[in-house]
Design a protein around this nucleic acid. Structure first.
Lengths: 210, 210
DNA sequence: GTCTATAGGTTGATAGAC
DNA sequence: GTCTATCAACCTATAGAC
């Protein structure tokens, strides 16, 4: 499980305010970890506290209640999305650009689907996550699609991609394939038996060029 | 909400065995309904009983426990998948065939994502659903992909589709787009702001023919 | 901020009559 | 098969000391 800790950085950055003891971060990291392992229905504050090495009361001190804890954990897992969509896609040639982008999308989804799925278990969490995602353009799912679509549109203008192809739709299929591939193991409990990233990129390039 | 009831049919088909009173079916239908509305975390046997118009004890008589009830409800929502994959895809011309197929996939997913998501809330339910899906080839997600892939491969052999295109991957992108489109409203709480089915089909055809 | 101890409120599940 | 009544377990959340 990747480390979420920004403790060290935060501690050296600012000397004002309470020095973080790390309990809050530890609780969040453990929450995500257990969420992934057992699912939200088995996520008990008691166990979070035990594994995080804090008291149960500490959880409620930091997050008020269970829902507050979950929302915080959700946000922390979704936040990296901004880094992906905030800046446009680079350009290192069509194939490498698409490959890198899809890899980044999948890396994000690898963490995100855990909370996306978990949020569906409760109408309030569902609404809460939905509102959070709607709140920033860079958090909307279509954002990534548009980014790639615009990149492709640029190539289309410059003649590198043939005209007449709906580049936005092509981008949509690309991102869609990432979601399918990442979701697959959660549903089936086995590695995804679907075409790899490269195959999708290659096939899409065959569509765009040719 | 679509009716799941097969009461009448079952009653007239067989005169042997206990005549179904409909309680079991009613409980299942209500379970799915509440699952969709409020999420699995808010799904209480008490409320199911109330809305289904039966006693709480009746639920445990029919399904042993909560998990049994959920598994049964899951299966009922996933079962229609067989109808989709059991028979191959027809052939009414490329465009119409793909359009019809994607429509059918989405119609299925419209119901299925509810239980697919819900199952992720608990490691046992997750494993249980995964096992169920793995149990029959026609329930595996790659099955639909293969079906379309084979259909396209046939057209490729007959020359209707240009060679050199990875038809399996094309099929994968098609199905992927359905998952994305259907999942979108659950995540964002708004209608999907992504390319429509027809646009995907058209774009894909541009790839395959040309 | 963090801990311990505890209470309050739910909820799944059972027993037994009909 | 269905109901009513009841329970035992569990889990979130709070109070108060340190």
């Amino acid at each position: 499980m990747a480390e979420l800790d920004s403790r060290d950085a935060a501690a050296s950055q600012s000397r004002r305010g309470r020095p973080p003891s790390g309990a809050r971060e530890q609780i969040l990291a453990t929450t995500y970890e257990l969420l992934r392992e057992k699912g939200i229905a088995r996520l008990k504050t008691k166990e979070i506290a035990a594994r995080a090495g804090v008291s149960e009361g500490s959880i409620f001190y930091h997050f008020r209640n269970r829902e507050g804890l979950l929302s915080a954990a959700f946000e922390q897992a979704i936040a990296p999305l901004i880094a992906l969509t905030g800046q446009g896609v680079g350009d290192q040639g069509l194939r490498e650009t698409l490959t890198d982008f899809t890899a980044a999308v999948e890396q994000f989804l690898e963490r995100a689907v855990v909370v996306m799925f978990a949020a569906q278990s409760d109408i309030d969490l569902r609404a809460s996550l939905a509102q959070y995602l709607r709140g920033d353009v860079n958090r909307r799912p279509e954002r990534g699609v548009r980014l790639v679509g615009e990149y492709l549109a640029g190539l289309q203008e410059s003649g590198a991609i043939r005209t007449g192809v709906d580049v936005e739709t092509a981008a949509f299929m690309l991102v869609s394939s990432c979601l399918f591939r990442v979701s697959y193991p959660w549903l089936i409990g086995e590695p995804a038996a679907v075409p790899a990233r490269d195959e999708v990129v290659d096939t899409l390039i065959a569509l765009l060029e040719s």
